[in-house]
């Protein structure tokens, strides 16, 4: 029954096929007259066909028409209530797609761009942080030879300090020795002076003791007179 239904619809469509394009052409041409020139409209229709070459476009259209005609004529496809449903479905899908597709696409693109922006800014911040770190670290690139030099200086300083300490110790020992020796010298000098004083005192005391002796004084006087006589004889005086 559906095949009969399809055939009837095809025949009724075929009888009036010549009138249909004219009826449909008038409002469409009026509708687009103010928007597109006929050349542009034709070009857009041709461009709407898939593939790039004009030959393949023509072949595709011809083949599609032939396949559709063959499918309908051999009842491979039967136009029935499901066809009406399909047309309505594709109309509503196209309408929903057109009304929602563009706003969603722009919103999604904005969202994607926002995420891209966040990621790119994070990448740039990371890159700048790394660059800054590299710069700050590059200031320390001479740290190894500088440390070696500092080590050498420190080593030399330690050596000098050691030498200085050794010399200071030697100086201290020598100063100590000198002071000890000086003290010894002073002590000996004092001893000598004391001995001289004591000697003088003892000599003085001995002389005074001897001078206190009258016999000695007489003997001394006689010796002195003898020496004077001797000198006078010698005409020394």
């Amino acid at each position: 029954m559906s095949s009969r239904f399809a055939l009837r619809s095809l025949r009724s469509a075929g009888i009036r096929s010549a009138a249909l394009p004219r009826a449909l052409a008038v409002p469409s041409s009026r509708g687009y007259a103010s928007q597109q020139s006929p050349d542009e409209k034709a070009a857009s229709l041709i461009n709407a066909v898939p593939t790039s070459s004009l030959w393949t476009k023509t072949g595709g259209v011809v083949l599609g028409t032939a396949v559709t005609a063959a499918a309908v004529s051999t009842e491979l496809y039967v136009a029935n209530e499901e066809t009406v449903l399909a047309v309505g479905f594709f109309i509503i899908v196209a309408a929903v797609g057109r009304s929602i597709g563009a706003p969603y696409s722009s919103w999604a693109t904005g969202h994607i761009d926002r995420i891209k922006g966040i990621l790119n800014s994070a990448r740039e911040e990371h890159t700048s942080a790394i660059t800054e770190r590299i710069t700050s670290v590059s200031a320390l690139k001479d740290v190894v030879p500088l440390t070696e030099q500092l080590y050498a200086v420190a080593k030399e300083t330690a050596t000098l300090e050691h030498e200085n300490f050794r010399l200071a110790q030697e100086s201290a020992v020598k100063a100590e020795l000198k002071s000890v020796l000086d003290s010894w010298v002073r002590f000996e000098q004092q001893q000598r002076e004391a001995e001289q004083v004591a000697l003088v005192a003892s000599v003085k005391a001995g002389v005074e003791e001897r001078l206190a002796d009258a016999g000695f004084r007489k003997q001394l006087l006689e010796e002195a007179l003898g020496q004077v006589e001797q000198l006078s004889r010698a005409k020394a005086i």
């Binding site: 239904f5 009724s12 009036r16 009826a23 066809t83 009406v84 449903l85």
Partner: peptide, 29 residues
């Protein structure tokens, strides 16, 4: 859709008039 299919295939005039209930049908889809 069954009724609309019958109407679309009745005649050109009926088919054109049927576009009005077809619009409602599309809304129902």
């Amino acid at each position: 859709s069954t009724f609309l299919a019958q109407l679309f295939t009745a005649s050109i005039l009926v088919a054109v008039v049927t576009l009005i209930p077809f619009a409602v049908f599309v809304a129902l889809i």
